[in-house]
C-alpha cells in the first residue's frame, strides 16, 4: 500500500486519530485497507486463472481430438522429476502458509525462516525444471516448427549426430532462447504417420528412471502433430515457470520488509497477499502435473 502520507488539511471527525504507520491516507481504518487489499489480490488471482484458461483450452482441444500426440509425447517426460517438483511446491505452500501465520502472530524470526524455506523450495523447483528443459532441447524436442527429434537418436553415443549448437541458458523460457538460434533443421526429418496405435500398446507399462531408455525403444513412428504436444508443454510449464520467478521476486521483497520488521498483527497484508499468489501458482501446478506427466 502507499507509504504513509499525513494529509495536512484532512482532520477526522472524532478528534485526533492515531494512524498506523502503514495506513494509507485514503483509508479510514486498517481493516478497510486490509479488506481492499484482499479483494484486490483475489481479483488479480481471477485474472491469473483466466490467463491460464487459454492454455488449458488449447490443451483440452488437442488432448481430446488428437490424443495420439499426447500418448506418444508423454514418454519423453520424466514422471519422477515431475512428482519431485510437485512435492517441493506443496512443501513451499506449507511454509508460505506458515509464514502468514507467523506474520499474524508477530513472530518475526519464524516469518523470516519460513520465507527463506519457501524461496529455497522455489529455487529447487526451477533447477529441476532447468534440467528437464535442457535435456529435452538437447534432444530436439522443441515446439512444432523446430521439432527435429530423430527417434533412436536419444541413446548415448549419438550426441553429435544432429549436432545443433543448442545450449539452453537460463531456465526462464529456455524454449524461447534455444529456438531463437536453433539451427534451421529440415522439419520434415521425422517421418509422419497417422496410425500410432502400435506406440500406445508399446508404452503401456514401462516405468524406468532413465528417460533415454524409458519408453522409446524401437519406436520409430511419431504422429504428424507431435510438435504440438511440446508446444503446449513448453507454453504451460514455461509460463508457470515465469510465474514462479515472479513469485520468488515478490517473496524476496516480503523477506526484505520482514527483516526490517514492518509486519505485525495489525499490518500483515502484503505477506497474506503474496501467500495467496503463491498458493495459486502451486494450485496451477497441481493441475499441470497430472495433465502433462500422468497420461495413459
Amino acid at each position: 500500500m502507499s507509504a504513509v502520507t499525513e494529509p495536512a488539511t484532512h482532520d477526522h471527525g472524532d478528534g485526533h486519530h492515531a494512524h498506523h504507520p502503514f495506513q494509507a491516507h485514503h483509508f479510514e481504518t486498517m481493516e478497510q485497507q486490509y479488506d481492499s487489499g484482499k479483494l484486490g489480490i483475489w481479483l488479480f488471482l481471477i485474472t491469473e486463472v483466466m490467463f491460464f484458461s487459454g492454455l488449458f483450452t488449447a490443451y483440452a482441444i488437442f488432448r481430446s481430438y488428437h490424443p495420439e500426440i499426447f500418448v506418444a509425447g508423454h514418454h519423453f517426460l520424466d514422471k519422477t522429476l515431475g512428482a519431485a517438483n510437485t512435492v517441493v511446491l506443496l512443501f513451499s505452500s506449507l511454509t508460505m502458509a506458515w509464514a502468514v501465520r507467523c506474520a499474524q502472530l508477530g513472530q518475526r524470526k519464524g516469518l523470516i525462516l519460513c520465507l527463506v524455506l519457501t524461496l529455497a523450495c522455489a529455487g529447487t523447483f526451477m533447477v529441476v525444471k532447468y534440467f528437464e528443459y535442457s535435456h529435452k532441447i538437447h534432444l530436439g524436442l522443441v515446439p512444432a516448427r523446430y521439432f527435429s527429434f530423430v527417434p533412436g537418436s536419444e541413446h548415448h553415443g549419438h550426441e553429435g549426430e544432429h549436432g545443433d549448437a543448442k545450449h539452453s541458458d537460463g531456465h526462464a523460457d529456455a524454449a524461447g532462447h534455444a529456438d531463437a538460434h536453433a539451427t534451421t533443421h529440415d522439419p520434415a526429418a521425422t517421418p509422419d504417420t497417422l496410425d500410432s496405435t502400435t506406440a500406445a500398446q508399446e508404452s503401456a507399462l514401462l516405468v524406468h528412471d532413465q528417460v533415454e531408455k524409458a519408453a522409446i525403444e524401437g519406436k520409430d513412428e511419431l504422429p504428424y502433430r507431435i510438435g504440438l504436444f511440446f508446444s503446449i508443454y513448453y507454453c504451460l510449464t514455461g509460463l508457470h515457470g515465469i510465474h514462479i520467478i515472479a513469485g520468488m521476486i515478490a517473496i524476496s521483497w516480503i523477506l526484505r520488509r520482514s527483516i526490517r520488521g514492518d509486519f505485525g498483527p495489525q499490518y500483515f497484508g502484503p505477506v497474506d497477499y503474496v501467500g495467496l499468489y503463491w498458493h495459486l501458482v502451486d494450485l496451477i501446478w497441481v493441475f499441470l502435473f497430472p495433465l502433462l506427466y500422468l497420461i495413459q
Binding site: 488449447a58 488428437h66 522443441v142 512444432a144 524461447g176 529456438d179 531463437a180 502433430r225 510438435g227 503446449i232
Partner: peptide
C-alpha cells in the same frame, strides 16, 4: 510464441 518459437497451435502448416 507462434511467430518466434513456431508453436503451431494456430498455424495450419504445423497442424494447428
Amino acid at each position: 510464441a507462434e511467430r518466434i518459437m513456431g508453436i503451431g497451435i494456430f498455424d495450419p502448416a504445423l497442424g494447428g
